[in-house]
Design a protein around this nucleic acid. Sequence first.
DNA 1: CACCATAATGAGACTGAGACTCATTCTCAC
DNA 2: GTGAGAATGAGTCTCAGTCTCATTATGGTG
Lengths: 147, 147
Amino acid sequence: MASSRWIEHVYETLAAAGLNRSSARDRVIEVLSGQDCALSAAEIEHRLRAAGRPTARATIYRALDLLVEHGLVERVIVGEGQARFEPLEPGGHHHHHLVCVQCGRLVAFDDPGLERAIDDLSDRLGVTVDSHEVLLHGACDRCEATA
Amino acid sequence: MASSRWIEHVYETLAAAGLNRSSARDRVIEVLSGQDCALSAAEIEHRLRAAGRPTARATIYRALDLLVEHGLVERVIVGEGQARFEPLEPGGHHHHHLVCVQCGRLVAFDDPGLERAIDDLSDRLGVTVDSHEVLLHGACDRCEATA
DNA sequence: CACCATAATGAGACTGAGACTCATTCTCAC
DNA sequence: GTGAGAATGAGTCTCAGTCTCATTATGGTG
């Protein structure tokens, strides 16, 4: 769950970027902040509508783009078809996800060994790696336990 | 470039699975076999049309699904929006890709260290990893050299 | 407070990938 | 050759995400 610290960080960052305050964007930020797992744009739209605060799809996408652009939210691509968005804690460590093939849950993890292995690749391949994504498919700890 | 050996392997596998031979599917297989980098379904459609052998989109998707299902083709997800398909050599080693942020080229690579790091994750996280995807973004060796 | 430039919003049309449908056509074992 | 089942094609449909543009909100300035 993203902390209220995250919300503050978001507002500070957006203000520092010289952006206006806007109620629709605030709504999107609020929904994201109260959420543990990554949400899709459609889920955010539904939640806002359910909360009696319907918000145009374009507005939601604009807010998400902006947040991603400022490093406040991470766009997580889980397979095809739909991007998911996840609050990025200020000093948050870089992490990746496992998609549970049984329950569909998205589980975050980080691993120094994995990061090191990827860092080492640059030299070996003669390429410059700007960023990387790792996505695992498998059974999460919960499903694993009940199997 | 996928070898003619790949084509043979594909036909053997599909025949062993009790599937009929079909000209449309053969066309898709042929386009894939002549290609080094991963193709999107749309690209395959265009090539077939350009070659005077137009083929219905649904047929192309069906053929690709089938090939992926039988482990003959790999579905590579490069960002959002569009899957790409790549022939998978019979004894082909597991590999990943780097998307060049400059030229857009998709470069394949493999790395035992990376695979090991991912294997080690299962125990540490208490999950069972069935499969994994790694995607790097950066400058490929060609663009790196000319930079 | 009033004004204005600019930023943001909302509604809906649009796009593009991919899935679905169903009538027609092809394959292949007999 | 024939018939059952597989495959095809043309088109429709869905769904995520983008674009447009008229309207509205924001915040600095006089």
